[in-house]
Simulated assay, not measured.
Amino acid sequence: MFIDLNLVEKFRINHEVLCRWVASVKRNYRPVSYHNWRHAFNVCQSCFCMIKTGGLESIFSDYEKLSLLVSCLSHDLDHRGTNNAFQAKIEHPLARLYSTSTMEHHHYNQCLMLLQSEGCEILSHLTSSEYAHVIKLVQHAILSTDLAIYFKKRNEFFNVVKSGAADWLGNDGHRELLR
């Protein structure tokens, strides 16, 4: 997917580093029933298909494509198989650390940790401003997987689409909803 979207060449991602990063992401998924590596890979494959066959390749920038693939693969890292409400009810340390979107903040922080791990730095050739931009997009994408946020944004998205006023290229708010 990274190769087919020309992201490896565009961002000068070393093939070995990419493979090591993907293997590290896979290893950091727990063997839970649903929020596991297979689920993450399926989400990434679905996103890739939407980009390639859904007309999004010409809409999204290379930075957005990169951030979406990274986000899809990382969006449930170290998931414990329980939801945010459960984490809060048992007063898990993660719930004390993050007051909202508990698990999603944890997944995002796990993603950052892996991206910064020695030998897994797939973003190492980005400038500091490019890196900050990609990380901001990754953060937004992963935090948006909190179902409380997702259902709110889903309604906004469908309202934009139904209105016929969707401007994926010129309206940053619409573009954010699409991502």
Rank of each mutant, 00 (worst) to 15 (best):
F11R: 03
W168R: 03
L114M: 04
G81P: 06
A132Y: 10
E16M: 08
Y131S: 01
R96C: 13
H140G: 13
A132G: 08
F11S: 02
E104Q: 05
S71N: 13
H106R: 01
N42E: 14
E9C: 13
M103I: 11
W37H: 08
L177A: 06
R179E: 08
G170F: 03
I51K: 03
A85P: 01
I90V: 11
F86W: 14
V134E: 00
E156H: 07
H133L: 07
S99C: 07
A85Q: 12
G164M: 07
K65W: 00
M50R: 08
V32E: 06
S101Y: 02
A165I: 10
I149E: 08
S67E: 00
Q45D: 12
G54A: 04
R96K: 15
A95R: 06
H105F: 09
A95H: 04
F86Q: 06
E176F: 06
A165F: 13
C47E: 07
L147T: 14
C111K: 06
P93W: 06
H105Y: 10
L68F: 14
L143G: 05
L169G: 00
L126E: 04
A95C: 03
K52M: 10
C47R: 04
C120A: 04
E121T: 15
H125G: 10
Y29T: 03
Y98T: 02
D172Q: 15
Y150V: 07
L66D: 00
H92N: 11
E130H: 02
